[in-house]
């Protein structure tokens, strides 16, 4: 049966997903709190897979937790740490436990993380992983052997609409579509005009696009991202807006974050009202508890993710 998330993607509803970062260690209290807070507010929750190559509690474990608490997990899977056997086996495990949504990523490079001497595997890449998923669905593994029991996945990937140069990313986007991606989460976007022109391109393909919304908490963070995070471009006007929010003499503590929530909400509202794409993926990076505030700022305080069969 199609996953709840896939049903939402194929409904006419505006899709909202968010992201949960597993802890370093087995104290799952905070993660559980975030899952409980968000599971009924969104169509699906991504669990990151050793994001930025920092070793953490596994994505599969986080997805099981979401499942146990009645939420809809989206398994992030990178190609950095596992060869094709291990990736296939984890996909079988996920399928056997009702985890059917998979986001396929290449994975960050090992040296950017906290296990700098580890081997980077990259036996498959994101395109090959997507294809592997469709092979498993056809009843075969990558060794060409028959599988006992059917699996079904809603598989997606990442695209970076602000990449410079853009064309190589678009070529890879096409390869991912051909390999079987049915949905895409974008890298953070801030310039909606730019995004609209990307959507003109993406609309040619039979895939759903979720715009990546990364919460900004200060002008400094925005500047840092511009200088250091590939494919992210925060326009100067937004940086000025964030700076002005804390510069006011009567600015309360947390004014920067409040402004960031307002900006994220405003963008979601605009995307949703103008139907720029099929939905949004909200990344609050360490501040998952403010996702409901972002939805409220988007005018979605009472909104319920319904595009699913309960």
């Amino acid at each position: 049966m199609a996953s709840r998330f896939r049903q939402a993607l194929n409904s006419s509803e505006f899709v909202v997903t968010s992201e949960i970062a597993p802890p370093k260690g087995i104290n799952l209290e905070t993660m559980t709190h975030h899952v409980d807070l968000l599971k009924d507010r969104v169509h699906g929750l991504n669990v990151t897979d050793h994001q930025s190559s920092v070793m953490r509690y596994p994505s599969l474990g986080g997805c099981l937790l979401i499942k146990e608490r009645g939420g809809e997990p989206i398994l992030q899977m990178t190609c950095r740490d596992r060869n094709r056997l291990a990736l296939e086996a984890d996909l079988l495990f996920a399928a056997s436990r009702g985890i059917q949504n998979v986001l396929c990523l290449t994975g960050d490079a090992v040296p950017v993380g906290d296990h700098k001497e580890a081997a980077g595997v990259f036996d498959l890449d994101s395109v090959q992983l997507l294809k592997a998923i469709r092979e498993l669905e056809a009843g075969r593994d990558l060794g060409g052997n028959t599988l006992d029991g059917d699996v079904e996945f809603c598989a997606g990937a990442i695209v970076t609409p602000e990449a410079d140069p853009l064309e190589p990313q678009l070529i890879k986007f096409e390869k991912k579509v051909e390999a079987g991606a049915e949905f895409f989460q974008t890298q953070a976007i801030y310039d909606l005009d730019n995004f609209a022109s990307f959507m003109e391109f993406a609309r040619q393909y039979p895939v759903k696009i979720l715009a990546g919304i990364v919460l900004l908490s200060s002008a400094k963070m925005a500047q840092y991202m511009n200088n250091n995070v590939p494919g992210i471009f925060v326009p100067q006007a937004l940086i000025d807006e964030l700076a002005a929010a804390v510069a006011a003499p009567d600015a309360p503590k947390g004014a920067g974050l409040a402004k960031g929530i307002e900006i994220a909400g405003r963008m979601i509202r605009e995307i949703r009202e103008n139907r720029l794409c099929d939905g949004v993926h909200i990344m609050a990076i360490g501040r998952e508890e403010v996702v409901p505030d972002i939805l409220a700022a988007a005018g979605m305080a009472d909104w319920q993710p319904t595009g699913r069969i309960v």
Partner: peptide, 14 residues
């Protein structure tokens, strides 16, 4: 760096 054969990763920058 990652030995990718199907095009650039998302980390490529300018």
């Amino acid at each position: 760096h990652k030995g990718l054969v199907n095009g650039p990763c998302g980390g490529t920058n300018r």
